[in-house]
Simulated scan of single mutants.
Amino acid sequence: MSFANIYRKEFKWNLRSFIIWTTIFVAFALMYIPLTDQILQQSEAMLKFIEKMPKLLLQIFSFEPELLTKPEGLFGSEGMSFVYILSAVFSSMLAGSMFSKEFEQKTIEYLLVKPCSRLTVFLSKLSVMFSFILILAGTFTFFEIRLFDAFVTQEYSVRILYAFGLYALTVQVFFAALATMISVIVQKSSLNTSISIGLIIFMYFGDSLGRSFENLEWMSIISIFRYIPLIDTIKNNQIMLGNSLIIILISGVFLLAGGLIFSRTDIKL
């Protein structure tokens, strides 16, 4: 079985799930962005309410009062927090479908007994996974920018909107790579999902806790969300491009480890 045959098979099997996830991302943008102007008109009352909220809660959901007066700040401080979580869950589940689910259902045996190397199988699956990730990140960024252009009348930074797209891609690549490594180790989709979701929650909320409490700072240091901060990006009008590239390179290490484990894994009967 060739690289192209495996690619087509995996693409077809996961296409339906991918379409559902893409619809969720687009629907979220459609639900949120068109209301931006209306929410900004009520920003004064909203700011008074937010000032009374606990500081920790504001940090968890990236609330920063001064940012809520900007269209991109409003979407970035609230909407992108959920996009981060959705991106991480999507990529983790996609990796699980590509690898641990195949081991669990024994369909991996069919591929591994075919006259093609394990490296070909592994790279074919990765190609499909990252094709979906790139398409989803591109689709989200396209709709994000077009919806801002169509519905937001106040001045905003397109540069920041592109940063949001880059960060969503970075999160997806990282958790896809991490879940791939986990999948080939545990070989069970339910266990992969549990571990991956646990790591997502730990990193996301650990970053907020680490920035709030000095004795928990280590939780923030090991979280990728610390290095692609939404608030700093909007306030400083600065894209954390270098940090994003480093996170993607770290993801490559996870993929390399996953590939080595996959190439040496015995088929369990």
Score class of each variant (00 low, 15 high):
Phe148Asp: 00
Phe148Pro: 02
Phe148Ser: 04
Asp149Val: 03
Asp149Ile: 09
Asp149His: 11
Asp149Pro: 03
Ala150Asn: 14
Ala150Glu: 15
Ala150Ile: 13
Ala150Pro: 05
Ala150Gln: 15
Val152Ala: 01
Val152Ile: 10
Gln154Ser: 12
Gln154Val: 07
Tyr156Lys: 03
Tyr156Glu: 01
Tyr156Thr: 00
Tyr156Ser: 00
Tyr156Gln: 03
Ser157Thr: 12
Ser157Met: 14
Ser157Gln: 15
Val158Arg: 10
Arg159Thr: 12
Ile160Trp: 02
Ile160Pro: 09
Ile160Leu: 11
Leu161Thr: 07
Leu161Asn: 08
Tyr162Gln: 12
Tyr162Pro: 11
Ala163Trp: 10
Ala163Glu: 07
Ala163Leu: 08
Ala163Pro: 12
Ala163Ile: 01
Phe164Asn: 05
Phe164Tyr: 14
Phe164Arg: 09
Gly165Arg: 02
Gly165Tyr: 05
Gly165Asp: 04
Gly165Leu: 02
Tyr167Gly: 07
Tyr167Arg: 13
Tyr167Thr: 00
Tyr167Pro: 02
Tyr167Val: 00
Tyr167Lys: 11
Tyr167Glu: 09
Ala168Ser: 12
Ala168Leu: 04
Leu169Phe: 12
Leu169Gly: 03
Leu169Pro: 03
Leu169Asp: 02
Leu169Trp: 05
Thr170Phe: 11
Val171Asp: 07
Gln172Gly: 12
Gln172Ile: 03
Phe174Gln: 01
Phe174Cys: 01
Phe174His: 03
Phe174Ile: 04
Phe174Pro: 04
Phe175His: 01
Phe175Asp: 06
Ala176Gly: 12
Ala176Lys: 06
Ala176His: 10
Ala176Asn: 09
Ala177Leu: 00
Ala177Ser: 14
Ala177Cys: 07
Leu178Arg: 02
Leu178Lys: 02
Leu178Gly: 03
Leu178Met: 13
Ala179Trp: 01
Ala179Asp: 05
Ala179Arg: 04
Ala179Cys: 00
Thr180Pro: 09
Thr180Lys: 11
Met181Thr: 07
Met181Val: 05
Met181Leu: 14
Met181Arg: 13
